[in-house]
Amino acid sequence: MTLFDDFLIRSLIAGIGVALIAGPMGCFVVWRRLAYFGETIAHSALLGITVAVVFSFNFMLGVLISSIAVVVVMYYIDRSENLPTETLLGLLAHGGLAIGLVVLSFFPNMRMDLEALLFGDILAVSKTDLVVIWIGGGVVFASLLFLWRQLLTSTVSEDLAKVAGMRPDLTNLCFGLLMAIVIAGAVKIVGILLIVALLIIPAATARKFAISPEIMAALAGLIGVVGVIGGLGSSLYWDTPAGPSMVVTLMILFALSRVLKISYGTTEKSATRNK
C-alpha cells in the first residue's frame, strides 16, 4: 500500500503535473493567438482515442498520435494552401471529431464513456497514466527551457528570429509537437472540450501580474495548480464533476484578478525592474 493507491492522491498529482506545464504552454497559446489551434488538436483527439480503444492501447498514446498528425498536416498544408488558417483548423477539428464518431459506430459492442472523454475523468487516473503524464511533462518542460529564447523571439517576429540566425519554422513545428504532448496528457484531466480552458485561463489571469514573459509562464503554472486543487476539492465536498469544477475555479480566479485591476491599475506603466 503506497501513497499512490489512493485515487485522490493520484488525481491530484496527475492534475498538478498537467497544470504546471499547461500554464507556460498556455502563455504561448495566448501570445501567439493559437487558441483555435489548441481546440483543433483537442477535438481531433477523439479520432486518436477511438483508434486507441479499437486496438486496445493506452488512449493517451492514441491522442498523441492523432495530435502529432494534426500538427504535421497543419505545418505542411498551411504553406501550400491559400485558405485562411482558421478555416483549415476548423476543417481538421471537426473532420477529426466526425471521423472518430463514425469509426466508433462500426464497433457497436465497444463501450466508451463519451462524457469522460468530453469533460475528463481525473478520478480514474491510473498509476501508468501518472507515470506517462509526469514523463511527458518533464519532456515538455525541458524542451521549453531549451527552446525558450527561440520561441519567444519568433513569437515577437519571425523575421527578427531569422535575421538572428534562428529557424522559426522549426521552432514552430517543435511547439506544435509540444502542444500535442500537453493535450494528450490533459484529455484525461479535463476532457476534450475543456483542454483549451486549462491552457488559456491561467495565462490570461497571470498577465495582470507579470512583468516578464518568464514570470507570466511560472504564474500561469501555479494558477493552474490552484485550479486543479480547487476543482478536486469541490468534487470531493460537493460531488461536482472534477474537470468542469477546475475550469470554474480558474474562471473565479480570473474574475478575481479582473476585480483587482482597480488597485493594480498602474502596473502597466511602472514595470521598472528588469529581467
Partner: peptide
Amino acid sequence: TLPLTMRRLLRLT
C-alpha cells in the same frame, strides 16, 4: 498580452 519590457526586448535574441 506579452509582458515585454523595453530592456527585455533588447535582450530577446
